[in-house]
Amino acid sequence: MTLDAESQPGSKRLPTLEIGDDGEATLELWCKGGKGRFSVAGNTVIFVAGPLEDRACPPARAQADDELVAALSEAATWRRQGDFVSFIGNKSLRFRLNTN
C-alpha cells in the first residue's frame, strides 16, 4: 500500500506499507525504513512498530517519518473502501492498495 499524501520537498518518494499474512509489516517511509506488526480483529487494529533504520535523513523527513509511525501506532480501527485502506485514530491515514 502507498500512503495517499503529497511527497516531501526534494523527494518523489511516498511511504509504503506491506502487511504479510502473519501480520508482519514492512515500512518504507519518506526516508527511514523498518518492520512492525499488525494485529487485526474485525475493524479493530493494533500496530506495534519495530526499530526503524536511520538513513541519515534530513530533519524534516525524519520528523515526518516519526509522526507517521506514531499515527499508525495510535490507530484503533481500520476500514477499506475500494482500493483504499484507512487507519483511524487521532489522525486518519489513507493508503492506496498497490494493484500493479
Rank of each mutant, 00 (worst) to 15 (best):
E28H: 15
K91I: 04
I46Q: 11
E53F: 08
S86W: 00
D83K: 10
L68Q: 06
F95I: 03
D54T: 13
L3R: 12
A41P: 00
G10A: 05
T16W: 08
A75I: 06
D83Y: 01
E28L: 15
L93Y: 08
W78I: 00
G10S: 05
L17M: 15
A71F: 10
V69E: 01
G34I: 14
T16K: 13
D83Q: 10
N90T: 10
I46R: 13
G89T: 06
P15E: 04
G89C: 06
P51Q: 05
P51H: 02
E18W: 02
K91M: 00
P9C: 04
A64R: 11
G23T: 11
G10C: 06
A71R: 06
E28S: 15
T77G: 10
D54L: 12
L29C: 07
L93N: 07
R79P: 03
T77M: 04
L93R: 07
D65Q: 08
D22L: 11
A60C: 01
A76H: 07
E53Q: 14
P51L: 02
E74Q: 12
L93S: 10
V45Y: 04
A71K: 08
D83W: 00
R96W: 00
E18Y: 05
S92N: 11
E67T: 10
P51A: 09
V69W: 01
D66M: 03
N98Y: 02
I88S: 12
C31F: 05
K32F: 03
A62R: 08
N43E: 05
Q8F: 11
L93H: 08
P15M: 05
D4Q: 14
K91E: 09
I46E: 06
D65N: 09
S7C: 09
V48P: 00
G36K: 10
A70F: 08
D65K: 09
P59R: 02
V45D: 01
L52E: 03
D4N: 15
V85K: 04
E24H: 13
V85E: 01
D22M: 10
A49M: 00
R37L: 10
G50A: 06
G33H: 13
Q81D: 10
D65M: 07
V40K: 03
L14K: 15
S86H: 03
D54I: 11
C31D: 02
F47V: 02
T77E: 05
A64T: 06
N90H: 07
K91V: 11
G82W: 07
V69N: 03
